[in-house]
Amino acid sequence: MRKIEITPVASKRDRREFVDLAYRLNGSDPNWVAPLRSEAMELVTPGKNPFFEHADVELMLARAKGRVVGRISAHIDRLALAQPPEQGMGPGTGNWGLLEAEDEDIAHALIARAEGWMRMKGMDRVLAPLSMSVWEEPGQLVRGHDHPPTVMMGHQPERYARWIESAGGYAPAKSLLTYELDIRKDFPPLIQRIVAAGEKNERIRIRKVDKSRFDEEARLILEILNDAWSDNWGFVPFTEAEIAYAGKKFRPIVFEDLIMVAEYDGEPVAFMMTLPDLNEVLAPLKGRLLPFGWAKLLLWLRKPKVRTMRVPLMGVRKRLQSSRMASQLAFMLIETIRQNAVANYGASRGEIGWILDDNQGMVAIADALETTINREYVIYEKVL
C-alpha cells in the first residue's frame, strides 16, 4: 500500500500547488469551467479573501512519493458558530471543502485528516463540503454533471459523492437546487395577472440599480439579503469587509437593467440580482487571461450576449414574507428582468438558484414559473 503524506499548506509554492491541482484533475471534464487562476488563488489566500477574518482555516495537501495527489480545506467559521443550531450551523460545527483527489483512498485520508483537525479545535459535528463559505460554492454536485455550471456555481466529479458517502458516517443534511426555464416564453396567465395587478399599485415601484451609486446600492441589497435570509438554514451574515469584497467582484458583471429593487411606499423591501453567465466566455480561456483572454473578456463585458442568465440572489424583507405581496414582488422583479434579458442580451435560458429544497416559498415560485430542476448539490453532515 502506497504511503500518503498529508501536510498543511505552508508556503507560496504549496498554495500554488493547492490551486493547480484542480486544473490538472478536472481539465479533461468537458463540463468543468476553469476559474480564473487569479481568483482561485485569491479564494485561498489570507488578506485577500475576507472569509479568513472570521474563520480558522487549514489548507492541506496530500502527496505520494513527493507528488501532489489531493487537497482539502478544513475551516471553522466563527460567525457560523454563533448561529442558532436549528438553522444548520451553530456551536461545535466545522466544515471542510475544496476536495480534490486522484482516488478514493486519498479522498478518505484527506477527509479523516480534516475531521481530526476539527476535533482538535473542539468541534463535534461537520457540515461539508463548503468551499469555503456557504456563500461561495456549497455542496457536492449529485445531479447535473451533463452540462456546465453557470457563473459562481460549483462542478465536481460524480465520483466524489460516492467517496464522501463511503468515508463513514456522512448523511445528507440538505439539498440545494437550481431551476432552469426558457425565458423567451411568456409566463403562465396567472403570473401575468399578478404582475399586472402589481403594476397598477401606485405604492409599488420597481427600479433599476444605479451603478453611479454602486457602493450604496450594494450595501442596500446586502442589507436586505441579511434580513431576508436570516432564518434560512445555513445562513451566515455578511460582514462589512465581505460586502466590500462582493461589490468589487460583482461590479464588472453588474448591469443596471438586470438588478432590480422593489420599493413599497418608497422603502426598498425586495431585490433580485441577475448575472449574465460569465462562464460562457470563461470556458475557452482555461483559467488564463494571457495572452488574449483579457481582450476577449473586456470586449464581452462591454455588451454581453449570452444564452443563460443566472439569478443567484433575491430576497424580500422578512416582515413581508408571509404576505401575498412577497410573491407578487418576486414575480414583478422576475418578469421585468426576464424582458430585459431577452431584449438587451439575447438570452434564452434562465437559471434560478441555488434554493434550499425545503424553502417552500421559493420552491412555490419556481413551480409557478413552470421551471425544471437542472442541478442538485448535497451538503452532508457527520457527528465527529
Score class of each variant (00 low, 15 high):
Lys3Met: 11
Thr7Ala: 12
Arg16Asn: 03
Pro30Gly: 06
Asn31Leu: 12
Asn31Pro: 02
Trp32Phe: 04
Val33Gly: 00
Ala34Thr: 02
Glu39Phe: 06
Ala40His: 01
Met41Pro: 00
Asn49Trp: 04
Leu59Asn: 02
Met60Phe: 05
Gly66Leu: 05
Arg67Asn: 05
Ile72Tyr: 01
Gly90Tyr: 07
Asn95Asp: 06
Ala101Ser: 09
Asp103Ser: 03
Leu110Ser: 01
Ala114Ile: 01
Lys121Phe: 05
Ser131Met: 09
Met132Val: 11
Met132Phe: 11
Met153Pro: 00
Ala161Ile: 09
Ser166Tyr: 02
Gly169His: 06
Lys174Asp: 10
Leu176Trp: 03
Leu177Pro: 02
Glu180Asn: 06
Leu181Met: 15
Arg193Thr: 15
Glu199Val: 13
Arg203Leu: 15
Ile206Gln: 10
Val209Met: 12
Leu222Pro: 02
Pro237Trp: 11
Phe238Val: 09
Ala244Cys: 03
Phe250Glu: 08
Pro252Ala: 13
Asp257Tyr: 05
Asp257Leu: 10
Gly266Met: 09
Ala270Glu: 07
Phe271Ile: 05
Met273Lys: 02
Leu275Lys: 01
Asp277Arg: 01
Arg302His: 08
Val311Thr: 14
Arg319Tyr: 08
Ser327Val: 13
Leu329Arg: 05
Gln339Phe: 06
Gln339Ile: 14
Gln339Tyr: 01
Glu351Phe: 08
Val363Pro: 04
Val378Ser: 02
